[in-house]
Amino acid sequence: MIRLGPASVRMRAMSDDDIFSSRLKLLIIMAKAYLSDCPLGTYRKKAVIENANHVFYHSLHLVSESSTLKDNVFEPQTEIGSLKKTSEEHLFHQRVQLLAVMAKALAEDRLRGHFRKKALIDNLDKICETLIFKFQIRDVNFLKVA
């Protein structure tokens, strides 16, 4: 029997945050695979659209949750650091939502043209910079077969 996943001491039920970060990672992989010309079959397209929808709405939910929390704080947030962090988080979620829209467009064959692809690459780079996440397409060679 092979064993996959975290060590015993780190095992736990999957939280909403686990699902969101895993789905975001999957969305990044899907976009990078598309840019590397991995073929998109019917079910892959369906999976991309489903995943993009999940990430988009979860990100919207997280943004509205954090703004509700902010609205409920009676003391005004005057600390510059805190404001900067909120703004960075907001920007990150806007980029994630944009990535979801782009991923949906690529699955529906609407992401055409040099500048749209460049915009996708730029957006992916900014998100990956934030996540400090590096993905190497050679690790998933099986994606090259549809």
Binding site: L4, G5, A13, S15
Partner: peptide, 10 residues
């Protein structure tokens, strides 16, 4: 054949 410990990753 395999055991997948949760949380499962991509």
């Amino acid at each position: 054949d395999a055991f997948l410990a949760k949380p499962v990753s991509v």
